[in-house]
Write a protein that binds this DNA or RNA. Structure first.
Length: 467
RNA sequence: GGCGGGGUAGCCAAGUGGUAAGGCACGGCUCUGCAAAAGCUGUAUUCGUCGGUUCGAUUCCGACCCUCGCCUCCA
């Protein structure tokens, strides 16, 4: 079965193949670094990570760009409030963002361009000049440059909006009378006192780029005029991605993106996430409550990207339990495979990959994993799984984890516990149950659960207390 | 007002014109000195409501109800 993905542009699931055989040019809208990213942001990034990893699992080389928006209204407001230069304001949030990516086991993109980098500002200015020259943009009285949406017949095609019918601007600013059409968007914003010392020189005077042109410039500058896939959150469809199409295609004359994929938003405990509602979480908030990045990753990845995800504490707890089931199975296989003499054979079924081929059907893919866990657990109970088969299953799991990223976090047993364990083993051998139980409590207090199995004591790290 | 997504067991959720995956929770069992942990196992006569098409619909069509989102810089 070929790879099939839902295309926002056509609103259909379509077969996918990159333009250049074997190589996928992927652009994903990254964060605006004015704050710590919240879990809603990360749902999108985890979805994009799943997409990239699955494409790679299918043998495709992915060249991925994720931009960092480090100049816009919010970052400017932030640095003005703090009274520091823009770059100093955004730097810690950039750093935090990369730490968060690691926490969630999100693979690094190949490029993380920053909007304020000189070469990208230069490209933005170059693109705007071209747009003006071709009649797609015009300069307003205040020096700002706007894109003329009437000049691009396809404007509105991605969002399926009839631009004539767009609701009149509730959010139209008072200076917008300078525009030919209320829908025209800024390519270059002339300097305003509120911008402080944030500005660049341009043929149209001092100012700064509009948000949309930042992405068009970085995308086409790094990946070329024709991308295979462009992703983002659903809110980016309009106007951001619509604008990107207009700008890029009017400059290059080529079809900008072949496949548009958008991730639905998440809700928290059934409501839209909002600071005012008290249900606003950054990844850091969840870590403080004792959840691991792996657990959050599971919770975010386990609902299909095209469905709204209701993020709940119950869902996190379910993620923790499901991962423990997976971990137990892994440990069982590892112990069994230790006596394997031969190499494990290749896996027999690719049901897992095929599920993901179908528009990243994660539910079906996880069902394949858990089905296999149940059937093989049953057989291990009957001792009918051979060591070499266990090895094969572990190999299969490694492939699965190259996509899902659920690898077990190796935690070494502290030396202090070895002593406790040894003493407990002695006590148990002597059937000194009271002493055994006391030692069990001590081990528990140290953060580990001791299990008595046929093979002796085994330790499992106690999950940190969840919030 | 325009456009779009959903309503499947307590919760999350897949799916198909032919009789309901998977995860969590819950009950039972096994194991155990007792536990814990783990494993196994059971649990939707039914897929928002009402009509229609069909031999047969959760799946197709129509109407309705509920809910969520987008409509100029929020992933």
């Amino acid at each position: 079965m070929p790879l099939r993905f839902f295309n926002t542009l056509t609103r259909q699931v379509e077969d996918f193949a990159p333009r250049e055989a074997g190589k996928v040019r992927l652009y994903t809208c990254g964060p605006t670094v004015y704050n710590f990213a919240h879990i809603g942001n990360f749902r999108a990034y985890v979805f994009e990570d799943l997409l990239q990893r699955h494409l790679e699992y299918r043998g495709l080389k992915v060249d991925r760009v994720m931009n960092l928006t480090d100049v816009d209204d919010k970052t400017i407001r932030g640095c003005r409030t703090c009274g520091v230069p823009l770059a100093d304001f955004t730097a810690p949030f950039k750093k935090a963002f990369f730490e968060d990516l690691d926490t969630l086991r999100i693979k690094r993109a190949d490029h993380f361009p920053e909007a304020t980098a000189p070469e990208h500002i230069a490209r933005m200015i170059e693109m705007i000049s071209t747009l003006i020259a071709k009649g797609h943009a015009y300069r307003a009285e205040d020096g700002s440059v706007y894109f003329r949406i009437r000049s691009f017949a396809d404007y509105g095609k991605l969002a399926h909006f009839n631009t004539e019918e767009l609701r009149d601007g509730v959010r139209v600013r008072n200076d917008e009378y300078e525009k030919e059409n209320v829908g025209d968007f800024a390519l270059w914003k002339s300097y305003d006192e509120a911008d402080g010392d944030v500005s660049w020189e341009s043929p149209w005077g001092r100012g700064r780029p509009g948000w949309h042109i930042e992405c068009s410039a970085m995308a086409t500058g790094i990946l070329g005029p024709e991308l295979d896939i462009h992703c983002g959150g659903e809110d980016n469809i309009f106007p951001h991605h619509e604008a990107e199409i207009a700008q890029s295609e009017c400059v290059t004359g080529k079809k900008f993106v072949r496949l548009w994929m958008h991730c639905r938003h998440l809700q928290v405990e059934g409501s839209k996430m909002a600071k005012s509602a008290g249900n606003f979480f950054t990844l850091r908030d969840l870590m403080e409550k004792g959840w691991s990045g792996r657990e959050v990753r599971y919770a975010l990845i386990s609902v299909k990207y095209r469905e709204p995800l209701n993020f709940t504490l119950e869902g996190l707890a379910a993620a923790r339990s499901a991962l423990q089931r997976l971990d137990e199975w892994t440990v069982r296989l590892q112990e069994l495979s230790q006596s394997a003499s031969a190499q494990g054979s290749a896996e027999k079924s690719d049901a897992f990959g095929q599920a993901l081929d179908d528009d990243l059907n994660i539910s079906a893919a996880l069902a394949v994993v858990f089905d296999l866990i149940r059937t093989t657990n049953r057989r291990m109970d009957e001792s009918s799984v051979t060591p070499s088969e266990a090895l094969s299953l572990l190999n299969w799991l490694a492939g699965v984890n190259s996509v899902l990223g659920f690898d077990v976090e190796a935690e070494s047993i502290p030396p202090a516990l070895s002593d406790l364990l040894a003493r407990r083993a002695t006590a148990r051998a002597a059937k000194e149950w009271k002493s055994s139980d006391t030692l069990r409590d001590e081990i528990l207090a140290a953060g580990w659960v001791v299990k008595d199995t046929k093979e002796g004591q085994k330790l499992t790290p106690l999950p940190r207390v969840g919030g």
